Amino acid sequence: MYVSAEIIAIVISAAGVVLMLGAALFAGFAWIVRRMDAMELRLCERMDAGDEKLGARIDSGDQKLGARIDSVEEKLSARIDSVEEKLSARIESVEEKLSARIDSVEEKLSARIDSVEEKLSARIDALADEVTGVKIAIARLEGPPRHLVSAHH
């Protein structure tokens, strides 16, 4: 089979065009990949810089707030201790006063109870004597017990 020079030129031209288009596509993709890598590096650098700034700001805020919280904690602890001491002293004072008052009331009531007990004991003894006297009087009134059978008939 015989191939003319024109057909060979067309085939070689088509192969050249295909190779050229392939090389152009490859170069275009390589260029896009390079740009994307460069953009990624710039974005990473920006993010790292922003991260460092935010980290420093957060650390500074954390230190300031920590110091402020510690200061407030110390003030409140001192205030609570002061209030606790005052209230403890006040409670002890009230306890002493109430204990003295309770002791006084206990003594008064004990004396009063003893007095009432003595009076009631005397009244009960007197009443027992009276009951004995009443029993004797009733026995005299009733006289000797009557016998059921009488000898005088």
Rank of each mutant, 00 (worst) to 15 (best):
L19N: 07
L76M: 09
V33R: 15
C44P: 01
L98I: 07
L54N: 07
L54K: 07
A139M: 08
K86Q: 12
S93Q: 11
E45W: 00
A38Y: 13
G61E: 06
A15H: 05
E73Q: 10
G22Q: 09
L120I: 01
H153L: 14
L109T: 03
R68H: 12
R46W: 05
G61R: 06
M47L: 13
I136L: 11
G16R: 07
S104P: 04
D129C: 01
L87Y: 07
D37K: 15
A89I: 11
G16Q: 07
R123F: 02
A15L: 14
L43Y: 11
A14T: 11
D70K: 08
E45S: 09
R35V: 07
S4Y: 08
I113P: 00
E40M: 06
D81T: 03
I32A: 12
E117D: 04
S110H: 02
K119D: 02
G22W: 07
A78S: 10
A38L: 12
H152A: 13
G66N: 12
I7W: 08
D37G: 11
A89P: 02
G133W: 05
I7F: 10
E130K: 07
D70E: 10
I113L: 00
G133T: 09
S121E: 00
K135C: 02
M36H: 15
S4T: 10
A5R: 05
F29T: 10
S71N: 11
D129W: 02
H147L: 15
P145I: 11
V149S: 10
T132G: 04
I138Y: 03
M20Q: 07
A100F: 03
I10L: 14
G143V: 01
G143L: 01
G50S: 06
V94M: 10
V94S: 08
A111P: 03
L43Q: 15
A24E: 04
K53F: 11
I58K: 08
G133D: 11
V116Y: 01
S110W: 00
E84M: 04
E95N: 13
A100D: 12
L127Q: 12
I69P: 06
Y2I: 03
I138W: 03
K108P: 05
I8R: 05
L76N: 10
H153A: 13
H153W: 13
A23R: 08
L127M: 12
R112V: 01
G28C: 03
V131C: 04
S88Y: 01
L76T: 12
L19W: 06
H153E: 11
K97F: 02
A126H: 07
S88N: 09
D103C: 01
E107A: 03
R46M: 10
A5G: 12
K86P: 01
E130R: 05
R146V: 13
M36E: 15
I8V: 11
E6H: 07
V17G: 04
V11E: 11
F26T: 13
D59G: 09
E95V: 04
E6Y: 06
E96G: 04
D125H: 00
H152N: 15
K64N: 06
A128G: 02
K53T: 10
K119G: 00
A24H: 08
L109E: 01
L54D: 02
M39Q: 15
M47I: 14
D62F: 13
E40G: 12
A30Q: 14
A100M: 08
E73C: 02
V72H: 09
H147S: 15
K75Y: 03
